[in-house]
Simulated assay, not measured.
Amino acid sequence: MGKIVMSGPQNVSLDGVVQDPDGKEGFELGGWFTRFGGEDLAEWSKIALEEALGAEAWLLGRKSYEFFGERWRPRSGELADRLNSMPKYVVSSTLEEPDWDNSTVLRGDVVTEVAKLKRELDGEIVVPASHRLGRTLIEHDLVDEVRMVVFPVVLGAGERFFGEAPSTKPLRLVEARTIGDGLAFLTYEFVRNS
């Protein structure tokens, strides 16, 4: 059985904003990833590589799939080579022909398809940046772990990592460490009722 991990790593501001970290979506407060990560981004890159090497597969929503594919397909190097060669599953009702190597489109009911994928794969199924997909999976108790890198900035507005949820989802802190001088890398597990 696979383990679904929201990560990649998942980048959030101190107040939980995940919207437009690189500034390419046109959000007025976008671009905080490089502005407030600074020299710590070299250490962040090591975490990203570590996670990619440890993942069995990536699971993405369509927008994240297109964003990452456009960014990583033309690159080479250890991280790019891993991302380009690893199995990728994209949740989409409209994508016909995926254009990134080793990609499979999951159609139909997202909860059913992801539950099936979780039963079929062993190891970590990492959901990078796809916070809308992640919210759906969290709501249906399919996510096992959340890993986030907290950037030292309060944006005050923007789309949050966790949206409104119909029920409380308790988590347990598994690990906390500093990346560089200013970033916090936090790992939480969802607490399941026994």
Rank of each mutant, 00 (worst) to 15 (best):
E120F: 08
D99L: 09
S103P: 02
R160G: 07
S103R: 03
E66D: 00
F27R: 02
P128W: 03
A115D: 14
G69W: 06
E97Y: 01
G108Q: 01
G8A: 03
Y65N: 01
L117T: 14
L29F: 12
Y188G: 04
W44P: 06
T104P: 05
L14G: 05
P74N: 01
T187A: 00
A42D: 14
E50K: 02
V143P: 04
G23P: 04
P170N: 04
F33D: 04
Q10S: 15
K24F: 10
R119E: 15
R119S: 15
G38A: 03
S85L: 05
T178A: 11
L106P: 05
V12D: 06
L155R: 06
L53I: 02
A115T: 04
V127Y: 09
P9L: 11
S76F: 00
E43K: 04
N193L: 12
K88V: 06
E124H: 05
P21I: 03
F33W: 10
T168N: 13
I179V: 07
G26E: 04
K3Y: 12
G30W: 07
A57G: 01
S64C: 13
F33N: 09
E66R: 07
A157L: 13
V12C: 12
D122Q: 14
E120P: 10
V126N: 07
D99H: 09
A184V: 06
L29K: 15
L59I: 12
P21H: 13
N102W: 09
L49P: 00
E78T: 01
V5T: 07
S7I: 03
A157K: 15
E139R: 11
K118Q: 11
D101G: 08
S45D: 13
V191M: 03
D141W: 08
G23I: 09
T168F: 14
G182R: 15
A176V: 14
Q19R: 12
P170Y: 11
D144I: 13
V150C: 11
S76N: 00
G16E: 08
V91S: 04
R75W: 00
A48R: 03
R192A: 12
V143D: 00
M148N: 10
L137I: 13
E189A: 02
I4F: 10
E124D: 10
R73W: 06
M1W: 07
D101V: 03
G30C: 04
D20T: 06
V90N: 01
E70C: 04
R192F: 11
A80C: 05
A115Y: 09
W72E: 01
K3G: 06
T168W: 11
E28T: 08
V91W: 10
I138T: 06
N11W: 10
P9N: 08
E189T: 05
F161M: 14
D181C: 06
G156N: 09
A157N: 09
V114M: 02
E50M: 02
S64D: 13
V90I: 08
R192I: 08
E56I: 07
V90D: 00
G108F: 15
L183Y: 00
T187Y: 02
V90L: 01
L59D: 10
K169D: 03
T104N: 03
H131G: 07
H131I: 13
V154A: 14
D22F: 13
G26N: 06
E145Y: 08
D40G: 11
I125V: 15
G23K: 01
N193C: 07
T34D: 13
